[in-house]
Design a protein around this nucleic acid. Structure first.
Lengths: 103, 103
DNA sequence: ATCGTACTACGAAGATCATCGAACTTCGAT
DNA sequence: ATCGAAGTTCGATGATCTTCGTAGTACGAT
């Protein structure tokens, strides 16, 4: 089984604007919440979303390129995880603030 | 001198999506940072921004309607303040996370 | 080698958004 | 009562974004 990480920004390349813009979209926020409940990561397809597969891929790419999540391949599947540590270092409290919000 | 508050959402009407969407725009983020440095509030016109007055008004409206800031009139001027307490209660850490970010 | 699965890339369509100028309102000062 | 300053609203324009279907890639299993 092959294992490869997808390109993503280094910690010091992450910009607040991009992160906030990435998080400020309902579908993407849903993805983040799903990821927060699964520290070991989730395959994209396993997240229940009201959009097609291609739209889902689009959102995951935006989140990854913003530096919010990390993705690596495992066979044909792509496992995503929240970049908790990086985000907590850059913007302490931001993630918790969002996740503790009333849904 | 007349003093009147402009309409804004109650604390329990504030939605995370709207807040994040409001914050995820460079000009608006700039406004937030200016407001964070002025606890007593700022008049819109005093904030240095790379946009015209009407665009500025547009952004301030979005921030107010999202529940991020409060605005009241003071004569012909409009003073805005961050809704720190409400935001901290709803999303503890979010604001600090954003404000401590490297610019 | 072929097939199915998981996912991505591309191009198009429609929606939403930022931006502006012009016209208008409101208030304080002359 | 008139003027100027501060700020808003409106309508238009161009940019950006979400969404989708289709076509394609990569991989594991048969």
């Amino acid at each position: 089984m092959t294992r490869k990480a997808l390109p993503q920004p280094e910690r010091d390349e992450i910009r607040v604007e991009s992160v906030l813009q990435a998080l400020g979209e309902p579908v993407r926020l849903q993805i983040i919440r799903a990821l927060a409940d699964a520290p070991e990561g989730i395959a994209c397809g396993e997240i229940e979303l009201p959009v097609t597969a291609s739209t889902r891929a689009h959102h995951l790419r935006i989140l990854r390129e913003a530096g919010v999540l990390s993705t690596h391949t495992e066979g044909t599947r792509r496992i995503s995880t929240l970049r908790r540590e990086d985000l907590e270092t850059l913007y302490p409290g931001l993630l918790t603030g969002i996740l503790t919000a009333p849904r």
